[in-house]
Amino acid sequence: VEYVIRERLRLHGSILSYHSVYFTILLLIYAAVIIGNSLIVLVTVLDLSLHSPMYFFLRNLSFLEICYISATLPKMLVCFLTGDVRISFLGCAAQLYFLVFLGSTECLLLAAMAYDRYVAICDPLRYSLVMNGGFCVRLVVGSWMVAIPIQMGQTYQVFTLPFCASHHLHHFFCDVPPLLELACADTFWSRVTLNTIILLFAIFPFFMIVVSYVRIIGTVLKMHSAPGRHKAFSTCSSHLIVLTLFYGSASVVYCKHHSSDSADTDKYLALFYTILTPMFNPVIYGMRNRELRIALRKLLWRK
């Protein structure tokens, strides 16, 4: 399958004149994601004061973001560096699998983080009992493992379709909606599978997140202490911002009707939740989390 990086660039002359600029921008973004999220992983492992469920989930989210952006961005960097915008059939299948698998895992992990905040704020006396080490590990392992066989099945279903028409995928990387547009067979059951997976791994976790935060907001508003309300909201604000960025862009791409007129919009929205959200993650948590900033300063000062 051959996919085109940006058709409209060819209207402005040679696409090679843009390669160095876009390659440099994407390389800097990739480096920022790797460094920023690796620092969060390192700090939350080395600092004993951050060995709590909240930072355990954050550590896993940061590691996931590194994997998530690595599913698509390295191939895009190669395309801009060499000017070759082709990808092999197996390479496209592998890219699609890791993209949807890691995306599903992120939805489940964000839901687990929301549940952690719910227990911490709404049931603080039982927090250490409920969110014990074994339960947290099971939540994280379950988030990583449950999507593996299901997304393997979806990837197999998509790539057993006949692609007998154009092999130009009008997208930055291999994703389910643009691949279904290329198929010259009936894609009804493939779309049913896609919508079912969206329901299980995106809508249901999002519903659980909404329920958790409705309960959290109700509990916080009943607090008589203004500092207590501020602390409770500050511990949730970073998570809410990451949720909004990830779900806001991904829902538009996966939950709306796709057409040739919306292809460009979909491409850029897909870049947002696959590249920019992992880049913003360490910035959001680092800027809004005082404990994390202090631990990072101690680590850098010691080094």
Score class of each variant (00 low, 15 high):
residue 5 I to F: 04
residue 55 Y to S: 04
residue 127 Y to W: 14
residue 198 I to P: 00
residue 135 F to D: 10
residue 178 P to F: 00
residue 166 S to E: 14
residue 225 S to F: 05
residue 17 S to A: 12
residue 303 K to L: 13
residue 111 A to V: 03
residue 230 H to L: 11
residue 164 C to T: 09
residue 240 L to Q: 07
residue 101 F to S: 15
residue 144 W to L: 14
residue 64 L to Y: 01
residue 97 Y to E: 07
residue 286 G to F: 02
residue 6 R to N: 15
residue 31 A to S: 12
residue 290 R to G: 13
residue 63 F to V: 12
residue 109 L to E: 01
residue 283 V to L: 10
residue 173 F to L: 05
residue 159 F to T: 05
residue 168 H to D: 11
residue 215 R to C: 07
residue 289 N to F: 10
residue 198 I to Q: 15
residue 172 F to N: 06
residue 51 H to N: 11
residue 154 Q to K: 05
residue 267 K to F: 08
residue 176 V to C: 06
residue 21 V to Y: 11
residue 197 I to K: 12
residue 59 R to E: 15
residue 29 I to L: 14
residue 262 S to C: 01
residue 244 T to P: 15
residue 283 V to F: 00
residue 78 V to H: 12
residue 9 L to I: 07
residue 15 I to Y: 02
residue 132 N to M: 09
residue 122 C to H: 04
residue 299 L to V: 01
residue 220 V to Q: 07
residue 69 I to C: 04
residue 166 S to C: 07
residue 85 V to W: 13
residue 279 M to G: 09
residue 74 P to Q: 13
residue 64 L to K: 08
residue 266 D to Q: 09
residue 112 A to M: 09
residue 223 M to C: 04
residue 64 L to V: 10
residue 267 K to Q: 14
residue 256 K to P: 08
residue 20 S to P: 12
residue 90 L to Q: 15
residue 82 T to E: 06
